[in-house]
Simulated assay, not measured.
Amino acid sequence: MEDKYNQLRLERYSKELANLLCDRHFAAHDTINGPQLIGFTPIKQINLFVIKELLLKWHHEMANLRSPYFDYEHEEVKEALLNFMNVLSRKILIKRDAFEPLLQKAIYDTFLLKLAPAATFEEKFLRIQEEITLPKLQENLKYIDLDKALFSGFVGTLSPSNRDRDYILSRFRLYLNANKESIAPLSELVATFNSLLPITEEEICQAAPQAPSLAAYAAKPTPAAPVEEKDVVAPIHMAQREASAPVAAATRPAAVADSNLNERFRAERPTMNEKFSKPVSSSVADSLSNRKIESLKNSISINQRFSFINELFDGDNMTYYHTIQKLDEYNNPDEARHFVLHELSHKYDWSKKQENVSKLIRLIERKFA
Results as ranks from 00 to 15, higher is better:
Thr41Phe: 00
Val50Pro: 06
Gln104Ile: 03
Ile236Met: 06
Glu181Phe: 15
Ala98Trp: 09
Tyr217Gly: 04
Phe84Cys: 11
Phe339Gln: 01
Ser287Ile: 02
Lys180Phe: 10
Glu201Gln: 15
Asp164Gln: 13
Phe99His: 03
Met318Tyr: 12
Lys292His: 12
Glu229Asp: 14
Ser187Arg: 13
Leu312Ser: 02
Ile168Cys: 06
Leu196Gly: 05
Ala219Lys: 11
Val232Glu: 03
Thr31Arg: 11
Gly34Trp: 05
Ile132Gly: 08
Arg165Trp: 05
Ser89Phe: 07
Leu126Gly: 03
Phe111Glu: 00
Ala215Cys: 07
Ser159Gln: 15
Leu141Ser: 05
Glu139Ser: 08
Glu335Asp: 12
Val256Met: 14
Tyr330Val: 06
Lys124Ile: 13
Gly39Phe: 04
Ile293Asp: 06
Arg90Ile: 02
Glu268Pro: 03
Gln138His: 12
Lys180Gly: 01
Leu56Cys: 10
Ile92Cys: 04
Met238Gly: 07
Ile324Gln: 02
Leu360Arg: 02
Asp3Ser: 11
Phe99Trp: 02
Leu344Val: 07
Arg171Ala: 15
Arg24Trp: 06
Ile183Leu: 15
Ser299Asn: 07
Gln304Glu: 12
Tyr5Asp: 03
His346Tyr: 11
Tyr108Ser: 07
Leu54Asn: 04
Pro212Glu: 01
Gln104Trp: 04
Lys44Asp: 01
Val87Tyr: 14
Glu355Ala: 14
Pro226Asn: 11
Pro253Lys: 02
Asn86Glu: 13
Asp328Gly: 02
Ala27Asn: 08
Ala239Gln: 13
Arg127Asn: 07
Phe26Tyr: 01
Val280Phe: 15
Ala119Gly: 14
Leu17His: 00
Leu296Trp: 04
Ala27Phe: 10
Leu197His: 05
Asp109Leu: 09
Arg24Ser: 08
Asn83Glu: 12
Ser159Ile: 04
Leu312Arg: 07
Thr323His: 05
Ser307Trp: 08
Asn179Leu: 11
Asp258Ser: 14
Glu311Asp: 13
Gln45Tyr: 03
Ser244Cys: 14
Ala245Ile: 14
Ala27Cys: 02
Lys180Leu: 14
Pro246Val: 05
Gln325Trp: 03
Ala225Asn: 10
Ile46His: 03
Ile183Asn: 03
Lys353Thr: 09
Tyr72Arg: 14
Phe265Ser: 00
Phe154Trp: 08
Ala369Cys: 13
His74Gln: 08
Ile183Glu: 04
